[in-house]
């Protein structure tokens, strides 16, 4: 008898154990950052070798210097705090409104009849177009900016949470009935947990819209904040400041996304789902 069954059965396919698959590839954290690192490298090469003029796109070194100047001068810190404050407050209002309305129309048929149609209509409004109206109605202080952020946050949350509530497994609602759940228990122990995956999708969308709304509001009309820094930089032709602020917007958006991912990890560990190959 041969010690190598493969030699005798060459038609058999070997199933490779998971830990040996792709063992030559770098760890996941490294493979994730490869694309970003390549882009920065390309940027550095392009500006250093003069393929792009510094007036149009400043080099990484210039940008870093600008960053240090703005941090030391205190402008960046103040602007960042002001922008963050607007986003947090606006998001808070938008979250309460969006999820609250979704609960009303998701849980009660009468609520759906009354709430859903107006929400679907309002949803199609391009909210950036509201800015002139908001300025006339609410003036030029903080209120219109916060309102715009709240407005942008409300709809993705409303739509996804509503869909989540209506997608809750009916057989589980039946179980709740056989276990004599009261109305509150049904909502908090069955319907909301069941709608949570969708709610988090809505949360991710709405955080994206929150930043977008903030950029619009601050660029059109501002006396402070990141958008104000950008507008001011445009007037004095400082491309580096504009790009720096855009990068900060991007980083803030990214960290919001990370927060949602963390929430998904914490809140959805019960879920059985496909994580990608």
């Amino acid at each position: 008898m041969s010690s190598d069954p493969y030699a005798q059965n060459p038609e058999l396919e070997r199933i490779i154990p998971a830990r040996r698959r792709g063992r030559h590839l770098a760890p996941r954290s490294l493979s994730k950052s490869t694309g970003a690192i390549a882009l920065v490298l390309l940027w550095w090469l392009a500006t250093t070798y003069g393929w792009i003029s510094e007036d149009i796109f400043p080099s990484p070194q210039t940008l870093w210097q600008t960053f240090l100047d703005l941090v030391n001068g205190g402008e960046l810190g103040d602007a960042l705090m002001l922008s963050l404050e607007r986003v947090v407050i606006g998001f808070g209002f938008g979250f309460v409104t969006g999820v609250g309305l979704a609960l009303i129309s998701g849980l009660f048929r009468l609520g759906e009849d009354i709430v859903d149609a107006p929400m679907q209509m309002a949803r199609t409004l391009p909210w950036a177009g509201l800015i002139p109206l908001l300025i006339i109605w609410l003036g030029i202080d903080e209120t219109p900016k916060i309102t715009l952020v709240a407005f942008a946050v409300t709809f993705p949350l409303y739509i996804n949470t509503f869909a989540g509530i209506r997608n809750v497994d009916k057989t589980l609602v039946e179980v709740a009935h056989t276990l004599n759940f009261g109305r509150a228990a049904l909502i908090f122990q069955v319907i909301l947990p069941g709608a949570l995956p969708n709610l988090l999708v809505g949360l991710r969308y709405s955080l994206g819209s929150a930043w977008l709304a903030l950029v619009f509001a601050e660029t059109v009309n501002a006396q402070g904040g990141l958008g104000y820094l950008i507008t001011h930089a445009r007037e004095v032709y400082r491309v580096d400041i504009i790009i720096l602020c855009l990068a900060i917007y991007a980083l803030l958006g990214l960290s919001a996304d990370l927060i949602v991912r963390l929430l998904e990890k914490l809140l959805l560990s019960w879920r059985q789902s496909f994580d990608g190959a």
Binding site: T171, L172, L179, N180, A185, P193, R271
Partner: peptide, 24 residues
């Protein structure tokens, strides 16, 4: 006072097993 068990277990996926048992 009724207890019901269905063909599929119908456990709440977001509650740990012990919590599923005493829920309600």
């Amino acid at each position: 006072r009724r207890g019901v068990a269905f063909q599929s277990p119908r456990l709440f996926p977001w509650k740990r097993v012990w919590n599923n048992v005493v829920t309600g």
